[in-house]
Amino acid sequence: MAVTATLPETMVPRPYLVDRVTADVSDTFTLVLKPQYGTEQFAFRPGQFNMLYLYGVGEVPISISGDPNDPQRLVHTVRALGTVTAAMQKLKRGSVVGVRGPFGSSWPIDQAEGADIVIIAGGVGLAPLRPAIYAILARRERYGRFVILYGARSPKDILFSRQLERWRSRLDTFVDVTVDRATGAWHGNVGVVTGLIGHGGFDADHTVAMICGPELMIRYGVLTLIDRGVRTNNIYVSMERNMKCAVGFCGHCQWGGNFVCRDGPVFSFDQIADIFQVREL
């Protein structure tokens, strides 16, 4: 009898309907998806990503930016940078997107209980961290101080600005925002986000830091945190590499001995300290 082989779910996109598209900042938008068939809930851990497929266009890795406690709505925040993401920007309610996932490692939400939390995000790097913020705020009492530091290019590039304001209005959460270039009505911080580290205070011995943004920002963020006494195994970073298959077969996302799709995208810094500074690795 002839033998055939069936591909696992992780290798074949499942159709999802676009429920809502929101323009966030200039080139960034948020898609809310729900399954086209059935009522499957999408369980994921903060920091994980999906492969989003547009029929006839292609597929891209996109972090999940929604609330892990609201698995009815699958949320992605996308920056239009290439062919596929530019086409995604034109999607409307009712459009169909293929989804594979969730893939990869996650932010240490459970392990960090009892510690002070410092979240450092740059640009659209706030999107993969938002599920972590939701998860921490959902059980805020289990953590020490909670600090969110965010940097954007200019005031109009501040992602999730209304949410940042809401979080900032809480008495148990410290939020500080900076911009690279100030414009007219901006009276806040100007400069790089790593310059905010220390604002809001934290107990270095008992702090877990989570960083996502441009690699240069991550580098200075890590160095500053280490300077201030945060342990390298308590500093977590989310890395970006060329994810194509997302299941550790295609090899494109390799970084040293890691498959970023599988061993990452979230790494504790002590896992990668020996390769982090090597250029073009």
Binding site: Y53, G56, V57, G58, E59, K244, C245, F249, C250, G251, H252
Partner: peptide
């Protein structure tokens, strides 16, 4: 060597 591309 096992690396492969995934192309649509």
């Amino acid at each position: 060597c096992f690396c492969g591309s995934v192309e649509d």
